[in-house]
């Protein structure tokens, strides 16, 4: 059972010697850095073309990624806005203590009192609602116009709406109730009403909502990873033959992996952009009702949109998720192929 090789003709030795000399001139060198840059440029071009040339599947994937990212992003922005309402500082803060002044107090005196109070460190802001403004507000509430007409005159007092600085109050060792009681001792003040309970409840709800958002963001982040991973896996299946051929020609695993990684990054990045567009339009849709609600709580609250920091964070995270998904998909394929070849 032996294999025999027979040398049939002897080769031309002189030709071989001249050939050896000629071989030396065959090698063309490219510096490793230039080669690396050229390979990346080709990968970027190739991966972008692949997305561009398959618009339907690209948009489908981007839409899934965008929807998955828009939900936690939208929730995060809503929570951020609500937090600013419930926080101690900031322009959006709602009043929490109402000082009802005595009926004898004039509008000018009420204004002076309001300005005096606003200078106190425990008070973030003090806003005067005159009895005329109050009755005008009442008239806009359905049914009250008729009631006020039967009463005749204006029975309402001037009110100073106070937003306390809770941290300063806490530092001075007081409670909010104690502070409110001290305000009752001020001259011209007839009655004090603390309206803090809803803020405390809102904060408790926000704490829960923040955690829920974190869980949703994690789950949907994993979804993005899987969607990109699966899309890249399908693309690899479609390019199996091509991958095998370029491996025969001498392509490294890095070379094979690179365009797919860029593809994953593009999916994540453009999916992120699309999700920002969705969030932006969703916020526009709720701006008006939120402002109406804020006015009912005597707040100047205006919903804030997607800031540049959130935008950058989202795009970076989504691109990273895309990269990770692609990395897993290509890595798995190359690992399986390597096992097959080493068998």
């Amino acid at each position: 059972m032996s294999k025999k090789n027979t040398q049939k003709n002897s080769s031309n030795k002189r030709t071989q010697k001249t050939n050896k000399k000629k071989q030396k001139n065959q090698v063309t060198t490219t510096t490793p850095l230039t080669a690396w840059i050229n390979q990346h440029r080709n990968s970027i071009k190739f991966s972008s073309q692949r997305l561009w040339l398959n618009p339907f599947s690209t948009w489908m994937t981007l839409a899934v990624i965008a929807l998955a990212l828009a939900l936690p992003t939208g929730l995060h922005i809503l929570l951020k806005n609500l937090s600013s309402v419930a926080s101690n500082d900031g322009e959006n803060r709602a009043s929490t203590i109402s000082l009802f002044l005595k009926p004898s107090v004039t509008a000018q005196r009420a204004l002076d009192r309001s300005e005096l109070l606003s200078e106190r460190s425990e008070i973030s802001s003090a806003k005067l609602i005159t009895k005329d403004q109050a009755i005008e507000n009442f008239k806009h509430i359905q049914g009250f116009k008729e009631i006020l007409a039967t009463i005749g005159g204006n029975p309402l007092p001037h009110v100073i709406a106070i937003s306390p600085d809770l941290s300063v109050i806490a530092e001075s060792g007081q409670t909010i109730e104690g502070f409110a009681k001290s305000l009752k001792n001020e001259s011209d003040v007839d009655n004090v009403q603390i309206d803090l309970e809803w803020v405390q409840r809102l904060r408790a709800i926000l704490n829960i909502a923040e955690r829920v958002t974190l869980v949703i963001a994690t789950l949907l982040g994993i979804t993005v990873l899987l969607v990109v991973g699966n899309t890249i896996r399908l693309n690899i299946s479609g390019k199996k033959r091509e991958i095998e051929i370029i491996q025969l020609i001498g392509a490294t695993n890095h070379y094979i992996r690179r365009p797919f990684l860029y593809e994953g990054v593009w999916y994540g990045f453009f999916g992120g952009i699309l999700s920002l567009v969705i969030v932006h339009f969703s916020l526009l849709f709720i701006v008006a009702p939120v402002e109406t609600l804020a006015k009912l709580y005597d707040s100047e609250f205006v919903i804030s949109g997607v800031g540049i920091i959130i935008m950058l964070k989202l795009l970076f995270s989504s691109a990273l998720l895309g990269l990770a998904g692609a990395w897993i998909a290509v890595g798995r394929h190359l690992q399986q192929q390597s096992k097959r070849m080493n068998r």
């Binding site: 090789n5 003709n9 050939n19 000399k21 071989q23 065959q26």
Partner: peptide, 30 residues
Amino acid sequence: NELGTTVLIASHDHALIEQMNKRTIVLQKV
């Protein structure tokens, strides 16, 4: 090959091999 490249061609076209007049290695089936 004239330019210096080593060339190894697997072929069973004996007429063509004869015509090229190069060294031939014959493998026998195991």
